[in-house]
Simulated scan of single mutants.
Amino acid sequence: MASAPGSGRSFPYVSFLRVYEPLDAFSDAQQLAILEQRTRERHVTEDLDRVDALRRITRLVSDPFPHHEPDLVRVLHYPRSNGTTAPYYCPNQLAVRTSLAAESLEQTIRGPLMDVLLPEVAREAQQARLDPETLSESTAKLHTRSATWGVPFSWFVLIHEDDLTDVVDDDGEVHTVRVAVTISECIDRARRAVASLAIAAPELDLLEDLTELTEWLELFRRDAVVELDYGPVADLVFPDESPMDVRMGIECLAEADMTGAAAAYRRLASRWIPIRQLARAS
Rank of each mutant, 00 (worst) to 15 (best):
G260C: 06
M114K: 12
T211G: 08
R42I: 09
L204Q: 06
S270L: 09
D169A: 13
L206C: 02
S15T: 12
L207D: 07
R266E: 15
L278N: 05
L113R: 13
I187C: 05
R80K: 10
G8Q: 05
Y88L: 07
D71N: 05
H77K: 07
E212Y: 02
L118G: 04
P274H: 09
L17G: 03
A2P: 02
H160M: 02
A125W: 07
L164G: 00
A53E: 09
I199D: 11
H68A: 14
S196L: 08
E21S: 15
A102S: 14
P132W: 03
A86R: 09
S138M: 04
R129K: 07
A195W: 03
A281H: 14
T182A: 05
D115F: 07
D169T: 01
E215K: 06
F238G: 07
Y20E: 05
Q126L: 06
D163Y: 04
R56A: 11
A102Q: 10
L268G: 10
F26K: 01
S184H: 09
H143Q: 08
T176R: 08
V167H: 03
V181I: 03
Y89E: 03
D28Y: 05
A140G: 14
A234L: 07
D209N: 04
D24I: 06
R189A: 13
P232D: 15
L158S: 11
M244G: 10
L278C: 10
Q277M: 14
D223E: 12
V121Y: 07
F220W: 11
Q30M: 13
A29D: 13
R222D: 15
Q107D: 15
D188L: 03
G231L: 09
A102W: 10
D49Q: 12
A180S: 15
S136F: 04
S62D: 11
L17T: 13
L197A: 06
I250E: 04
V157G: 01
R80Q: 13
V233A: 05
F11L: 12
A281F: 14
E203Y: 03
D115E: 15
R221D: 14
E103N: 08
T259H: 06
F238A: 10
S3K: 09
E212M: 04
E241H: 09
W272H: 12
D209Y: 08
E120F: 00
V19I: 15
I34R: 02
G231Y: 04
Q31A: 11
V233C: 09
L60D: 07
E103C: 02
L32T: 14
G6M: 10
A256W: 05
A125P: 13
S154Q: 10
A53H: 10
P232H: 13
G249S: 08
D209F: 02
G172Y: 06
V177N: 02
C90W: 00
G6L: 02
